[in-house]
Amino acid sequence: MQPSVLPGVLHPRRAPGFVASTLAIARKDMLIELRSRSVILSALAFAVLALTIFFFAWDPTAVAPIDLAPGVLWVIFTFSGLLGLHRSFGVEQPTHAMDALLAAPVSREAIYLGKLIANLGFVILVQAISLPAVALLYNVPVGAYVLPLIGVVLLAAVGLVAVGTLFSAMAVTTRLAELLLPLLALPFFVPVILPAAQATARLMSGRAVSEVAGYIELLAAFDIIFLVVCTLAYPFTLEQ
């Protein structure tokens, strides 16, 4: 029997399951973000500003909207995502809450995946707002290929968040975390952003889905690689 500070009232413990602890961490991070809204608001503000700047800098007589829209979309996705990824482990910093997580009997991989799920929710939310905004401003009719486009965007989000979450964990304890995270993560974003942007451009041009199947397979392959490698690498970022 475990000792209790509550004589006569015991609360039995069992080892927390991997999925349960992963979801509890994701839920906690989402709840914190819903309360503070710091990441969502700053990412959306960035998305609106970037969209506006690109729109007013655009000369429609020189560049067709179909040529510009995919690039604008992926610039917004990439950099607004970075804003949120930095915050991911930043919420643990002020009161050293990470120590409590590491002292708990949850696997390090569950901590990483919990953070990843919360980040994915945030990135998808920003994408869900940015995508229609870009389509509207650049007058790109996305209705005919909206489902494959959403598929491409979601696949890319998984890859970006998998890499970004890992580098957020590595950068957060450094003095120059805000600078270090983009420097570390952006080179690893390239294998995800390139096929995603190419697939987006082709879909927006009205090409058949079969023409972007190769890009989608490439995205899925990078997602699997990044998910596995980053999950396995995360515990090593905690070594002191």
Partner: peptide, 25 residues
């Protein structure tokens, strides 16, 4: 250091810790 999350209530912080340790109720 308190190791608490400022945006959560006291109860939510304690309940989160309980989940991390597999407390039944």
């Amino acid at each position: 250091q308190t190791m608490l999350y400022d945006a959560l209530t006291a109860r939510e912080n304690v309940e989160f810790a309980a989940r991390m340790y597999g407390v039944s109720d």
